[in-house]
């Protein structure tokens, strides 16, 4: 990363090749069903823009996921704004919004994916980063900006909720 920060494009490309797949999976697991590759691209463009802010004292993945998390937050806000606007326009025109044909995320088994979607953002985030991306608690804490103890607590409650949701669904079936 230090070479990339100095403008070495080959080093930067090596970073892209190494981290593109984990990032792609991060976005898909975080509930971005479409355009996940676009978000990967945005994250790397942002990484290039902020390359000089990277300090070698921090772990590179922490820096990268911090940026990815912000890209995801921005994307969610953008989609909410677009949705509100679309709904207003539809209301003005007296047209009903078409049912979404967005393909569901296919990275996890259906029941697990559905259960993940039912978690709050904060809980889902620690599960995605800590369990699925296999990042240590300390790194998850840095990325999400909360103490390690809070990450552990969120993880406990998130997994407990997942278990409850999956258990409930099994009973329903």
């Amino acid at each position: 990363m230090m070479a990339a920060a100095k403008g070495d494009m080959r080093s930067f490309e090596a970073l892209v090749v190494r981290h593109q797949t984990p990032l792609l999976n991060f976005f898909r697991r975080s509930g971005v069903y479409t355009d996940a590759e676009d978000l990967v691209q945005q994250t790397f463009v942002r990484l290039y823009r902020y390359r000089e802010r990277y300090s070698p004292r921090a772990k590179f993945t922490t820096f990268l996921y911090l940026l990815a998390r912000q890209v995801r937050v921005d994307e969610v806000r953008k989609r909410i704004r677009a949705k509100v606007l679309r709904e207003r326009l539809m209301a003005d025109e007296g047209v009903e919004e078409p049912v979404s044909t967005e393909a569901p995320y296919d990275g996890l088994a259906d029941d697990l994916q559905a259960a993940l979607c039912k978690l709050s953002n904060a809980h889902r985030e620690v599960v995605v980063l800590g369990v699925l991306q296999e990042l240590p608690y300390a790194e998850v804490a840095e990325i999400t900006g909360v103490p390690v103890g809070t990450v552990k607590s969120r993880m406990f409650h998130a997994l407990k909720a997942l278990r409850r949701i999956l258990g409930d669904e099994r009973i329903d079936k």
């Binding site: 494009m9 930067f12 490309e13 892209v16 090749v17 593109q20 797949t21 792609l24 999976n25 898909r28 697991r29 590759e37 990967v40 691209q41 790397f44 463009v45 290039y48 296919d106 990275g107 996890l108 088994a109 697990l112 599960v127 369990v131 699925l132 296999e134 997994l159 997942l162």
Partner: peptide, 23 residues
Amino acid sequence: RLSAMETWREASPGLAGRVMAAV
């Protein structure tokens, strides 16, 4: 169970090229 059941999705072959073009 979560760790075991999730599957890893590979990036499409052209993604790195597109990213580098954008960079």
